[in-house]
């Protein structure tokens, strides 16, 4: 048996008005399971980021439901959604969005600080994660002094620091060379995945497909198929 982390059904999202109205996600239903690394792949513009935002409580769908551990995400108030994202989710954005005016370690501490963890403890914990991603000596540098791959690792450490149940990564390897990309994905998988966690990665990078437990294909807003390689019992 497996536990379902996210159950999405009939998700539909439109953009634009009138003539320009287009459907970005159309009647998408799928599940993401604890213990698996789920890939969302498909051509550019197929609606991957849109779907990812909807299931993480960032973008409201026009139709459909998202159940996380049985509770309906889109029935929540904005503040409840914020709390949900803060307490349950970890995000790695495609272009990192690190604060250039803060040090690397302070950047990593942000989710803890949002959770009102006291400053010194937050920094100490962040330092631990910085060590995990192998950048302890860069703790007091601003992120701009780091290479692209190092910044990506900082962004990942930031997503991991609050120990989220669901880790969401949008194109985490887009700006990395093949080898670094593979290393990073492998690293994320080995350091965060367990039977109580779930990782969802949006990508069109074939070089990292080998780490997937499940691959979900999208085209023109529709989910065209899902293959599960591992964990299918």
């Amino acid at each position: 048996m497996f536990d379902i982390a996210i159950q999405a059904s009939g998700i539909t999202k439109w953009f634009g008005e009138g003539e320009a109205k287009t459907v970005a996600v159309s009647d998408a239903s799928f599940e993401a399971r604890y213990g698996e690394m789920l890939y969302l792949v498909g051509p550019s513009g197929s609606g991957k980021t849109t779907l990812l935002s909807i299931i993480s409580g960032i973008l409201k769908p026009d139709a459909g439901n998202v159940l996380v551990d049985g509770s309906n995400l889109w029935n929540m108030t904005p503040n409840q959604l914020a709390d949900f994202r803060l307490n349950r989710m970890g995000f790695v954005f495609q272009d990192y969005h690190l604060f250039s005016r803060l040090t690397t370690v302070e950047n990593i501490a942000i989710p803890l600080i949002l959770k009102k963890v006291n400053w010194d403890l937050a920094i100490k914990t962040a330092l631990g994660y910085l060590e995990v991603v192998g950048l302890k000596d860069k703790a007091n540098l601003p992120p701009v002094k780091l290479s692209g791959g190092e910044q990506q690792r900082v962004a990942i450490a930031r997503a991991m620091v609050s120990q989220p149940d669901i880790l969401v990564l949008d194109e985490p390897t887009a700006s990395l060379d093949g080898e670094t990309g593979r290393e990073i994905v492998q690293f994320v998988k080995s350091h965060t995945l367990n039977e109580k966690r779930c990782i969802i990665i949006v990508t069109h990078d074939n070089r990292i497909l080998e780490f997937a437990d499940a691959i979900m294909h999208m085209e023109d807003g529709k989910i065209t198929g899902t293959q599960r390689t591992v964990n299918e019992k």
Partner: peptide, 18 residues
């Protein structure tokens, strides 16, 4: 200049009031 960062904070779960 910091707008994206504020947006990222919001995505991570910062409330508007914060």
């Amino acid at each position: 200049e910091n707008l994206e960062k504020f947006g990222a904070l919001k995505a991570m779960g910062a409330k508007g009031s914060e």
